[in-house]
Simulated scan of single mutants.
Amino acid sequence: MANPYAGEVIVEIDGLRHQCKLTLGALAELEAGLATGSLVDLVRRFETAGFSGADVLAVIVAGLRGGGWQGTAADLVRADIAGGPIGAARAAAMLLARAFALPEA
């Protein structure tokens, strides 16, 4: 079970549940791999629904790797992500939101 207070999100891939989290290392890897802009630009694209499929894939891969997964984006090309592209986009948006949310007072 994912702990939202720890920034965790569950993503189901090919019928297996994976715990995802954008750790500092995963965020650094994500930013280094972005085709354009910074993490702030990426968050803005998600906030304005201006993100691309590549953005979604990059965030999902970073979250999986932050959760301990050893794969790459190429491993997900033919994978079935629960909820399809919309489910993947929701999971990516949730990962970003939880990574940058301030703790409740």
Rank of each mutant, 00 (worst) to 15 (best):
I13H: 00
A99E: 12
Q70T: 10
A99N: 09
L27I: 04
P4V: 06
R65D: 14
G7Y: 11
T48L: 13
L24Y: 15
A79C: 04
F51W: 12
D41V: 03
G25Y: 07
A28L: 08
G33P: 05
D55R: 06
G71N: 06
C20S: 06
A2V: 03
Q19G: 02
G53Q: 14
A58G: 03
E31A: 05
R65C: 10
L30I: 03
G15T: 01
I13W: 00
A92C: 01
M94I: 11
Y5N: 09
D41Q: 01
A99G: 10
E12R: 11
D14I: 00
L30T: 01
A58M: 06
L95D: 11
E47F: 03
A58D: 11
G37V: 02
R90D: 13
Q70C: 05
Q19C: 00
M1D: 08
A89C: 13
V59L: 04
V77N: 03
P103H: 14
R65N: 14
T23R: 12
A105H: 15
A32T: 01
E47K: 13
G63T: 05
V56T: 07
L24A: 13
L95R: 09
L27K: 09
V9C: 03
G25E: 15
G53A: 13
L24T: 14
L39A: 02
A82T: 10
L95E: 12
V43Y: 11
D41S: 01
L22V: 09
F100N: 12
A101G: 06
A73Y: 13
P85G: 06
G33T: 08
G15C: 00
D55G: 00
G67H: 04
I13N: 01
V11T: 01
T48K: 15
D80W: 09
L76P: 04
D55N: 07
E104I: 15
R17V: 00
A58T: 03
W69H: 09
E31K: 00
Y5W: 11
L57Y: 00
V59F: 07
E8A: 03
A101C: 05
G15E: 09
G53K: 08
R90N: 09
L30Q: 08
D55V: 04
T36V: 07
A6G: 07
R78L: 15
F51G: 06
Q19A: 01
I60T: 11
L34Q: 07
P103A: 13
G84S: 06
E8Q: 14
E104F: 15
